[in-house]
Structure formats: structure tokens, C-alpha cells
Design a protein around this nucleic acid. Sequence first.
DNA 1: CGTCGGCTTGAGGGAAATCAAACGATGTGG
DNA 2: CCACATCGTTTGATTTCCCTCAAGCCGACG
Lengths: 241, 241
Amino acid sequence: VPRTEFPLHRAELYAELDDGDRRLSREMGEDTRAVAPRGVVTRAGEPSDIVYRLRTGWVARVRGVDDGKQQILAVFLPGELFGVKALLLERQPDGIEALSAATVSQIEVIRLRKLIAAEPAVSLRLMFQLCEEERRLHNWIVGLGRGDAEARIAAMLLDFHRRLHRRGLAAGDSFTLPMTQQQIGDFCGLTVVHVNRVLRRLREAGLVSIRQGAAILHDIAGLRALGRAVFDIYESEDAPS
Amino acid sequence: VPRTEFPLHRAELYAELDDGDRRLSREMGEDTRAVAPRGVVTRAGEPSDIVYRLRTGWVARVRGVDDGKQQILAVFLPGELFGVKALLLERQPDGIEALSAATVSQIEVIRLRKLIAAEPAVSLRLMFQLCEEERRLHNWIVGLGRGDAEARIAAMLLDFHRRLHRRGLAAGDSFTLPMTQQQIGDFCGLTVVHVNRVLRRLREAGLVSIRQGAAILHDIAGLRALGRAVFDIYESEDAPS
DNA sequence: CGTCGGCTTGAGGGAAATCAAACGATGTGG
DNA sequence: CCACATCGTTTGATTTCCCTCAAGCCGACG
């Protein structure tokens, strides 16, 4: 696990985080599972006794609200842990679905809890995941609470780009974005129709183009200007590329 | 710490959570601090080496966006831990301010980290706080992404009421609400003006009345109906009163 | 008594939702 | 191989919710 996996954080913890990450990986071993696009990893309300790590592909945490409407609460990218709350909750409050073809590895909560008791480094690794996610949720609340459609979409794209970049999964200014406009709307709290219009505006302004599952950020500085309110002090500094 | 402090969670963990909570309390000891209303606990961007527990009063995590606008990211009530991210981040990404007069107790990150290494129960208690907060953030994202002003305000009031109720800080259907309409707007992603209008509608519909810092929920069922989309499966079941 | 912070109300405008429909790819079965 | 269904995208017309601007009101407090 490269050091850049844990950026922005207290430098003295890198070694321990790495250690926790490796132990967790080892414990998860080869117990992996493939999920088709749109496939379900966990259904909302069902008992869940497993914590996951995403190996490849994209998955999303999804809350269904009445009459088919959905809100995507979070998007997970390769390397990240998800379902960590299963440690404390008997049932997942929301569903977890694959956005693209994905593979996940897993560990039962019971084993993980033993591992935690024995290995503080694993605790730390889990807390890191929770803290990182919390920061992202805080930023996103600012986006939904105070940002308009352009700010939300710009911020979303920059966030994906940055996270993929760190893991070496994005080359230059482009990356694969396995989300339909409907899903982008579900994430940004907008309708498909409006997402489409905003994407056209951004494209015509030369900021970004999205075609057949690939996003190209033509003007990162411009996107940053649009989405600036959504980023916290750490993300404002940590400019990719 | 009464068992009801950790509701909705795996029953087998109550004992360990209680244990972790007590050890943490003991370690924090009498090192407490009083904060005036509107007082600052932590300023955004400053290095922070302390994790807090709120003893009395209300505090909020606040992100300032351009030109004086603000977004309240979270509201903490007595008994809850906050600033836990300081364990991993050198600086707090947002400010923490008192909504009412408040007292907090504290522990330095260095001591806390030693405690974690020695006591898995304390790790668990911290993770509980992080998970609980994450659930609340997820719910709130649904509110901001898919809910209208009435849904947001109804959900906010029910959330406060439920949480206070658990701790024995709300008697019956009413509780003290130390927030101005401006702050309610900052939390709900609305303008003061609109908050005022919606509160009037809710009052005239006989759902809730807010006067001089006290909220009275006259029709909890009606409020639940308005805010239902915002609650996850756990909160839907766990009806207070 | 005047000022200030918070609450309240009105009028007008704008961003995004809703309703409706067409278009283009992709795949499938007759 | 073409008719046809499906899924995602695109565009137009209308409506709605909430914001902005503006101003008056009330109680607290110096």
C-alpha cells in the first residue's frame, strides 16, 4: 500500500495505518466476490454481518425514498472499505449496489471484532475510513445545502478525479465514470433532466465532457472555481495534477 | 451511563460500549471548560489536538462559505463526543461553536491514542460515535437532496427530540431549542426568511410551535409524515413517546 | 429612548422540478 | 436482416419552491 493512500493525515500514523491495512487485507484473504453492474451487494434492512473492501469497480450506497426515487449517499472507489457500520449495527440502513462490474473482498464481523481487540492498528485503519468518509459527507452537505447544480456536479467530478488519481486509477485529466445521468442526479439531488442541461452548459463552456462512461476534465481550475464552496481546507490545498 | 445510551445497536456490545464510555470519562476527568453562547470551541484550520465530550448545552460544527454564509454540518447534544477526527487529522476542517451556554470535557489526542492501544473498548466507543454520526449524516443528505423545506425542518425537530429524549433531556413533547431561525436555516440549507414562513405554516397547521427557545411538538405523527423520507429504517422504528 | 438582534411579512425573480416527447444506441427475436 | 423494445440522452414548455430585496415589528438592553 503506497504511502499516498493516507494523505492529509498525521504523518506519524502512516506506518500504523499501513500496518492495519495489511493485516486487514491478509485477514480478508482470497474470500472475494464478483458483482455485475447494477448488482446488489447488500439490501437495505437485511441483517449484515460482513465488512467489505472494494477491489475493482465502483459501488454506491443507495437510499430508496418513496415511489422509486433514490438518493445515492456515497460512492466507493477501489481500495476503500465499506459496510463498516455493520460492526455496530445489525442491519444495514441502506442498500449497496454496484455502479460498474465490481469485485469485493469481505470479512465477517465476528472475526473483525476479534482482530480489533488484538490489533489497535486495525482499529485505526477502520477509524481512518470512517473519518475520511465523514469529511466527504460534511463536504457534500455543504454542496447540497448551499451549492447550486453546477457547483454540485463540478465538486462531484473533482472529488472522483482526485480520489482515483491518488490510487493511480486516473491518467491525466480523464477517468472512466460508470454512472448514468440518472445516477448523477440521484447523487447530486437533481433530476435527470436538469443534470443533462447542466452537463451541456459545462460542456459548452469547455469545462468538462462526458461521453460513453468517460469524463474528461478540460478545465480543472474552472471546475474548482465552481465547486470551491464544497471543499474543506484539506481538499482545497491538495490539488491533483 | 444507562443502557439506552446505545440504542439500535448490537445488544452484545452494550457492556463493552458502557465500559469504553466509562474509561473515557474517567480519563477525561475534571478537565472541563465552559463556553458562552456563540463561543468558539475550535476554529477552522487551526491545529487541534483535543477530542471533546459535551457535558451540557448544545454545540454545532459550522462551515463558513463565502461572504458570511454558513452551513451547520452537525449539532451535538449532551453526552456526545465531538472532534474525534482530531485523532487522524492535524487540523479541524471546520469550526465548532456553542449554540447555547455549554460545558465540555476534553482529552489530548496523544493520551487518547495510548488509551486506544491499551483498551479496545475505548476504540469501540469512538467507532460507535463515528458510526452514529455517519448514520445521521446519511439521513441528512437525503433530507437536503430530496426533501423540501417542510420535510427538513420536521426531520430536524424530530431528530433533536428523539436524541434528547433518550438522554432524559426532553420531557414529553417539548424541549429547549437554543437556535435562532438563522441557525435553523444554516442547518437546513434555507434562508431565514423561508424558515420563518415554513415555521408559520407548521404552527398554523397545529404541528409545532417554537417560542423563545422552546419547541413544542403538538403533532408528532404529522411531523413524522412530513419528514419520513429523511429517516432510515432504525429511526422509523424507534418511535419516541 | 434609541439601538440592535431576531422575528415577521410582502413583492418580484430565478433555479430547478415537472410534464411531455423525441432521438440515438444497443440488443433481440421473428 | 429488419421490426421492435429498451435504456439512456436530449430538448421544449410550464410550474413551483425558494431566494432576493425590502421594510416593518418586537423585545432586550445599555
